[in-house]
Design a protein around this nucleic acid. Sequence first.
DNA 1: TATGAATGAGTGTTCATTCAT
DNA 2: TATGAATGAACACTCATTCAT
Lengths: 207, 207, 207, 207
Amino acid sequence: MVRAPTSSPLKPRKAPRQPRSEHTVEVLLEAAAQVLERDGLEGFNTNAVARRAGVSIGSLYQYFPGKDALTLALMRREGARFHAEAELTLDQPTGADALKAMIGACVRQQLQRPTLAHLLDLEESRPPLRGAAGGGARLIDIVAEILGRPDLSHPRAKLAAADLMAIVRGMTDAAGERGESDITDLQARIEAASFGYLGAPTTRAGD
Amino acid sequence: MVRAPTSSPLKPRKAPRQPRSEHTVEVLLEAAAQVLERDGLEGFNTNAVARRAGVSIGSLYQYFPGKDALTLALMRREGARFHAEAELTLDQPTGADALKAMIGACVRQQLQRPTLAHLLDLEESRPPLRGAAGGGARLIDIVAEILGRPDLSHPRAKLAAADLMAIVRGMTDAAGERGESDITDLQARIEAASFGYLGAPTTRAGD
Amino acid sequence: MVRAPTSSPLKPRKAPRQPRSEHTVEVLLEAAAQVLERDGLEGFNTNAVARRAGVSIGSLYQYFPGKDALTLALMRREGARFHAEAELTLDQPTGADALKAMIGACVRQQLQRPTLAHLLDLEESRPPLRGAAGGGARLIDIVAEILGRPDLSHPRAKLAAADLMAIVRGMTDAAGERGESDITDLQARIEAASFGYLGAPTTRAGD
Amino acid sequence: MVRAPTSSPLKPRKAPRQPRSEHTVEVLLEAAAQVLERDGLEGFNTNAVARRAGVSIGSLYQYFPGKDALTLALMRREGARFHAEAELTLDQPTGADALKAMIGACVRQQLQRPTLAHLLDLEESRPPLRGAAGGGARLIDIVAEILGRPDLSHPRAKLAAADLMAIVRGMTDAAGERGESDITDLQARIEAASFGYLGAPTTRAGD
DNA sequence: TATGAATGAGTGTTCATTCAT
DNA sequence: TATGAATGAACACTCATTCAT
């Protein structure tokens, strides 16, 4: 094994400017996603990704300085539209509405491609990637902001935000693993737990 | 040379009869735990475990037919006293008390050696170990039984049990990762979420 | 890490397309042959082969999915020109001529690189390679066909063919081990035994 | 691996004088034979033999200085009664009778426990054991002596003897591998080849 | 003398990464 | 710029042999 990263090993090596390059990057990311889904972390290796992408291994390394950078880019891609949606929740009038919207966004995100989302979550906690995607932290900030809204005004907003995101992540992951697909039901249960946590139960969950 | 294992690759290879053997097994398991804690899944390999245990790699393989068997044995060791405690929760008079006891057991278990517990959780979801430890499924059954008690009598006990365990796991994992150590506070927050989920809020969490 | 091979462990992993690859494969096969000849089955390991080939171990595994595939490829390489020659024996006018030609082919094959041929024979009987080269069975069919010719017309052609090949193999192996190199003499003795077996002695052997 | 034989690694380490020891040696040899038959050369290792013998690995090494010594002892055990029988063939009045008797002895020996005999043959050609059992050479001497008898009086007795033994070994091995069990038929075919080789065919083989 | 725990060099194999073409 | 052949450190696992008990 040869591990001598000269520059930052996580940032994309080159900004793909030409359309052909953009396309290659896109193809590589989708290939990575599919390999992850089909073969799990066990089968997730750079050669397999390149092969599936129909691209040479050399090309992969031209766009990504290393495996972790590829993983990271995939995380960002998967998180992109989700983050946009998450930001929008702040536009909701009340904190409660915003929180519901946020939960909805999380659930949709996680259940879109459940195994992919789950595996990326796992990868995200691996030291070299720890918080590199920045998604989690940012998300918690948004939720914390929501919890500061007048109708919720939680005294320990940051901590509660972390707890809520943990609840959401825990429940959606488990649901994904079980193969659940009824988004509405799941969302209702998560809301029950969340608002219960906040001391303002909506309705009895799971009825 | 690597050939197909003739016997089950997960069951311990030989029961340690002499006191010396027992000691070696104990030392190996603790070494495995420590390697996992210090170096993560990345650094968790049989040679490292043997080295840390101060034992030859051959000895490791005398007691465990493979890496997975070692991991599994560690899971069982870590889960042992916890499972005992979990069973006892059924002795509680009311469902609410039982559930609180259960949450307490989970929290204590997870916060005892947080990173170890977390990494073992991850490993448990890897295909070759999927449910091999048998802990998770059993746990959910207990909780489901609790939820069937008169004072809780949840109509979708099995599903709710899974949800509750997901909440507990999600929150404790996150707490462990943050380095939280105030068990009582964490437990209170989890109870809030749990009873909120069940539609019977106790007090506003996090106040 | 050693995991179950996903594809057939005996078929070559990748067809060498570039001339460089072809060369590497050729070099690896010849190295395998030489290691086998110098160090026997004992010393025949993938690292030794790669080292002797002046190639990294990784390269070996790029072209052969495993040790057995390498062995098999070597068998086929060694058997290639021989099989061509064996097929041609059917062009001989009479059965007797064809049989003599066949014996000649076998003897030449076995005495070209006697130890190599012998060791490959041994390997061929190891379970994972059992009949994989397909050489032996095919050979017997050819001989059986020869024995069916009018001038020989043996009533138990298949059995006799197996016997004859056993005679040829036994005698050439022994001769090879003794270091015999007079092909003509050996061939004459084998013919004596063979035609004697068929009930049509030519001349007294060994005179 | 630790390979530092201080004394001759092939001779039995201690002459078992006490009846208990003799019994242990016998048990070990039979265990070795059975392991060889059941699991082949692949599974033939000292620990397996000891386990099958119901004896500790330490005991095995008390009676045999190494694996090869064990193998060798097994060869001698298997060859013992056969050699006795082989010697007796010299008592036959004519060379032809003696040769037939010899062939019969060989066939019986090889077909008694065909796989065992075959695997031991293979082992015998491995360098550390090369000719150590001494069986083959001695056998050839006997046959050479037979071939010198007046009725056969072969001019190249030693060479012819080697050839004949090669024929016998080749044909019986192949027969054993095929699972043949009709000793008389096989013997007749071998005689045909043998006497054919000598220029004195008996009857057409295989009719 | 018997036991079996312990040893560790050796073997097959993988995969992230480099670099000549 | 793209290719894919080549690299080699790392890892899982085996087994002949030793030696303390």
